[in-house]
């Protein structure tokens, strides 16, 4: 039980007393929109994760086809240097706060193709990564787990406190 929240029986129904940050984060974690960004075979598993069986939509996560509307970038697949420049551009176009999941061995370190001249040795060479999901490719369950770790990370953040300077609202 989170001690930050308390549920009180009021005269006309239940009242939830919480912190503004908890409320904001609760909303944020329940509507993570991720960028449609499949690069290789991991993209197929990413589609499966969005499909009816794993159904990542139950977390409120829906794919967006534009970085302007995305909170989360799932780098799914082998990243070549040519694509790395585009991936960096897409990341820069996403609005803050933004998160990155490195999905699979290739995105994490180059994987099977790390001795190839054209393959970038890990997406963390160009953009900061929050969660690494191992696998080749990871199963939808593994990606869902990584997704839930992003949710945990979101719940720990204190944006209202930071932006309000921690000052008491009048």
């Amino acid at each position: 039980m989170n001690t930050d929240n308390s549920l009180i029986a009021g005269d006309e129904g239940m009242v939830l007393v919480s912190k503004l940050d908890n409320l904001i984060n609760w909303n944020r974690k329940s509507s993570i929109w991720y960028l449609l960004f499949g690069l290789a075979c991991c993209g197929i598993e990413l589609m499966q994760t969005g499909g009816p069986r794993a159904d990542i939509d139950r977390f409120g996560a829906v794919p967006r086809a534009t970085p302007r509307q995305a909170d989360l970038m799932i780098v799914a697949g082998t990243l070549t240097y040519k694509m790395a420049l585009r991936a960096k551009l897409l990341y820069d176009q996403m609005p803050d706060p933004k998160y990155v999941i490195s999905m699979g061995a290739c995105a994490t370190c180059g994987g099977l193709f790390q001795l190839a001249y054209s393959v970038c040795k890990g997406v963390d060479k160009i953009i900061p990564v929050d969660i690494y999901v191992p696998g080749c490719p990871p199963r939808p369950e593994a990606l869902t787990e990584g997704f839930m770790r992003i949710q945990d990370k979101m719940m720990r953040e204190r944006w209202a406190q930071k932006l309000g300077g921690g000052a008491r609202l009048a």
Binding site: Y81, A84, L85, G110, Q114, Y117, C120, K121, K125, I126
Partner: peptide, 12 residues
């Protein structure tokens, strides 16, 4: 192989 491509290192 070059040491880097546009500032991206090519070794890990």
């Amino acid at each position: 192989e070059q040491e880097d491509y546009r500032g991206i290192g090519t070794t890990r």
